[in-house]
Simulated assay, not measured.
Amino acid sequence: MTTNKFNIHAQKQEYPGSDAQLEPQAEFISENYLGSRKLVGKVALITGGDSGIGRSAALHFVKEGAEVAITYLKDSEVEKVDAEWVKQWVENEGGVCRIYPVDLRHSQEAKDLVAQVLSDFKKINILVNNAGTQYPNDDLATLEDEQWLDTFATNVHSMFYLTKATLPHLEKDDVIINTSSVNGYLAPGNMVDYSTTKGAQISFTRGLANQLLKRGIRVNAVAPGPVWTPLQPATLGQFNPEFVENYGGNSPMERCAQPSEMGPTFVYLASSDSSFITGQTIHPNGGMMVGG
């Protein structure tokens, strides 16, 4: 596939969007992906694991032998449907998956989530901070304070809260993976608040990696380029429907990625294959050249 052409009229999704309603449907794991037991005995907690990149990470982890705990946005019926799909898929594969409705913008909910996951699984070995949001805006003067604060609460504060709550339970050779974005580097003018949070996530990754070196816990980030997820029509599509029609077409590969093209990157960072990598960011972005 060299280009994407999506039917913008089929993308009338409301925030936060749903994989079940995405048209065309996204691919989360390729049919020929064969796991090689890289994560046997591991428990992974993945925020936003109901859809998009988080769902792909969860499916790939299960193929590698991990058990997965995934979160979805509390009070969102469409995300609940998506999360239940993941749980059913995992169980059909003979794996273990539990789903947790939560609003990680609140510190206590992060603490309660970790306590529940530990009760259910007895341990956490892999933390994937993936949940996020975006609200396009092309004029800072009209960017509402509430939007700025909510973008930071969802993308940055939740990452801090959940990582802080999880850290006492991580041991040597456990890992943290943060989902950032190419926009943390390119910073498009219509996503100032979002890009700022994505830059903050990169610095959080680097600083935390240095802090945890002595404990043998690795911390890395993934900074995807355009990926076909429900967040795109539910946010960018509301801002500019025509943008969705050729989503990712301006990238060097002239297309967006499928979530299935992200999952293996998370497997690499979660496994011992990346044992000498920490504080780094991997850039599956279709050939965009970025600094850092």
Rank of each mutant, 00 (worst) to 15 (best):
V128L: 12
V128C: 12
G225C: 08
A153K: 14
D174Y: 10
G263E: 05
E14I: 05
H60P: 04
D19Y: 07
M191F: 11
A115P: 02
E77D: 13
I46L: 04
A26D: 01
G225E: 09
P136Q: 15
G286D: 10
P16W: 01
V267S: 08
L162P: 07
M289C: 06
V114W: 03
G35F: 05
Y72P: 02
A209V: 04
N32G: 03
S275Q: 15
R105D: 03
A153R: 14
G95H: 05
G132P: 06
P188R: 01
A10Y: 07
Y33G: 03
T2H: 12
D103M: 06
M159Q: 08
F239Y: 15
G225Q: 01
P233F: 09
Q21C: 09
I124Q: 00
N240I: 04
H9I: 07
C256T: 07
G189I: 07
H9M: 10
H9N: 11
V117W: 03
I29S: 03
P101Y: 00
G189F: 04
I124Y: 02
Y185P: 00
S76P: 06
L113R: 10
N130L: 05
V192K: 10
D82I: 08
E77H: 12
T142L: 03
I177Q: 06
E23A: 11
Y100F: 14
L59P: 05
L34F: 04
V43M: 02
F6T: 05
S18Y: 09
Q258D: 05
S274I: 14
Q147R: 15
M288K: 08
Y100L: 10
A200Y: 14
E64G: 06
I53A: 01
V78R: 13
P168Q: 01
C256A: 15
T229H: 12
I124C: 05
F6S: 04
A223S: 10
Y100R: 13
Y135H: 14
T196C: 13
T3R: 15
